[in-house]
Design a protein around this nucleic acid. Sequence first.
RNA 1: GCCGAAGUGGCGGAAUCGGCAGACGCGGCAGUCUCAAAAACUGUUGGGGGGCGACUCCCGUGUGGGUUCGAGUCCCACCUUCGGCACCA
Length: 817
Amino acid sequence: MADRYDPREIENRWQARWEDDGLYRAADDDPRPKWYFLTMFPYTSGDLHVGHWYAMAPSDVGVRYRRMRGYNVMYPIGFDSFGLPAENAAIERGIHPKTWTLNNVERMRGQLKTMGSAFDWSREVITCLPEYYKWNQQIFLKMFDKGLAYRAKGAANWCPHCQTTLANEQITSEGTCERCKTLVTKRDLEQWFLRIKDYADELLDHSGLEWPEHVIAMQKNWIGKSAGVEVSFPLERKDLEEKEIRVFTTRPDTIYGVTFMVLAPEHPLVEKLTTRQREEEVQAYVERTRRLSEIERQSTETEKTGVFTGAYCINRVSRKRVPIYIADYALMHYGTGAVMAVPAHDTRDFAFARKYDIPIVTVIAPPGWKDEGLEEAYTEPGVMVNSAQFDGLLSDKGKEAIADYYEQQGWGHRTYNYRIRDWLISRQRYWGTPIPIIYCPKCSIVPVPEKDLPIVLPDDVEFRPTGESPLKFHQGFLNTACPKCGIAATREVDTMDTFVDSSWYQVRYASPHYDVGPADPKAVAKWLPVDQYTGGAEHATMHLLYARFFVKAMRDLGLVEHSEPFIRLFNQGQILGPDGQRMSKSRGNVVAPDEQVEQHGADTFRCYLMFLGPWDQGGPFDVTGISGISRWMNRVWRLVLDNYDATAAKSNPDIEQSIRKATHKTIKRATEDIERFRFNTLLAALMEFTNELSRTNAIEVVGTGAWREALDSLMLLLAPLAPHITEELWARTGHGYSIHNQSWPEWDESLTVEDEITLVVQVNGKVRDKLSVSASITEDRAKEIALASDKVKGALDGRQVAQVIYVPGRLVNVVIR
RNA sequence: GCCGAAGUGGCGGAAUCGGCAGACGCGGCAGUCUCAAAAACUGUUGGGGGGCGACUCCCGUGUGGGUUCGAGUCCCACCUUCGGCACCA
């Protein structure tokens, strides 16, 4: 009898051994094909939770499988360690952000190691250290040189609680801060932007990427490219510098229906166009709009409001005078900030026209239209009417015809518009990468010379959430000399959005200690792009879009040669508390992984997480089921050790053959499942295999070659899932160290096919009999024995057989009338 | 409103192609062991009905239609849940 399975002892021992041996270190000069596997690095929140395990344990299985398939696998890990929580902890508890963060790194590193993952710790990257963020600064400077980073004043999203600006992507659909759920407002500030919009078309192209369709769809939605025409409407007043209003429209076919014009309240023409009589009202409206938060302004529920400016422009084709309004439903940052309003065919314009008694002219006829007024906007395609020479055209054709006409007349041109906006990276906070820019009274914006990098974050800073960067009050940091002319100048005091850090960390892992640039070109050429990336779907439009942009920008800066960071992407689902709600301390439904590991061992905990269901689905985590995995681990332990060394007492070729078949079928199933990351069914297959071996653990098979092959295969197939117990069993059954350097077992296809099959016999689609027949049965013979079955005869009840369907290897269906 | 994913036993879930619905596991029930309990092991377990019984019949994959010899799987309409976007002209 073998001794008891003691996961704690085994796991500690092997983890130490693997670390001492550097078993998982990826060598740059290994000639085998490379495989770069990456799981999203954790933020240094302080504690590893079940979500981390749920994300990382299955990734580790993928890694170990690739290793067994003969790849030179790199699986690095690090810490995303800049960001607000560190600073908030500093303010609340008087700990320095750096201390807080590095303590958390220490703690989380220890917790991560208990998972028994095949991480290559020698490549660890910690983003809050100057060795890393120096390169953020260098890349930023190169972007600045190329015009990819620019400074602009604009209405920035402002979180009053975090006391900083936010990127568009960091605002929830409720208009609140993604981090603290505070209502976001607007502030006019000079800020740094990166030109992600310049890459919009390239970012829309996901060819060559094996990504989940829904993530691609989300990115496409986010970028929001729409085709249309930019057309001009001449102003009635001729005494202004501007002679026309330019608008973007996707519906040029409705241009005869334009009965008013809407400018965004911030539109530069508003001030110039407004007549003296309307001035007061317009100014009041502009003021009111400015005070509204984004959420109030953008709510589709709010009634359309606006005011007339007193000015008119001319609809070139209908020759009509068109009144110009301002309304907050026109957005300054989309298109030209002006809208040609067609109330008959746009729901917003319709509501506005109704409210302010503006004429509604139908120019696209709905089906069966009899020249009557519309009760609501008709936005579907239809036949053009009231549109002079274009009458009778279908609206789709009309779009092209009018676009052509405008282009011929020189009144407009076809173009595209994008929903995505440039990436605002300035943050008025301390714990981030200092933006390497100096403001000189004489030379204005001056980049820090590369030789002066890194601009190091000073430690002795007072954390006062004032809405301005704490760095502004640090005289030693703030004051400097202009690198160009040498006179007294000040530094940029804002820091970079932490998404900058995670936009290229995957590149840094290739050469984490390289000190003459962000990345060693040789190492990058060897390792990048990432072959398989895994992480949560919440990053679909932020991190994943930023990282794609960054790599393309770095390519154009000559820093890397590839264009896409991540070839394959897998999104795991979200793990919830036992109550089906998000795990949170306030709900009291948090499951601590450390406790589970303490109780059941890492192998069991890992496997249980994978057994819950499909990885991309996530779901509630209920600890009660873990005993099933625990019991199974014990069964495997006993099964392997009890009879491994026995010698065959006598042989039974039938049982041996059936064991061999079970083995090869299991290898096949396991391989197919692991390739598709279907760990739940993979585990089910291994359990079935274990059950079958337990049943046949009889005197006739133990000690035979087939028996050994079965147990060896079981250990090897289980090795990626449960690395510790399998390493221990592998050693105890007299194999060499390490099971994690063995080859993945191969299956013999001829051993996976059955000689006997169950032929299902149906009558009118209902199962009436099951017959055990030879797999090589002919169609005629199968039909014959099916019809001969007593049960079929009984079901026929003397009625006429109309047809007999045969599906090879599966069933016979007798159709009767 | 738009885009995307999903609805299967008491529970988590399985079912590459349209072909035995419920694999595997939890929980439950019964049993073995035990003074007893726990643990472990064995058997059983979709619902309903009939038979002493080997058995047998009916119903059943969110709802309603459809295609098909045959539908959890395909098509149409709808309901519910979750995720994303949302005055984008």
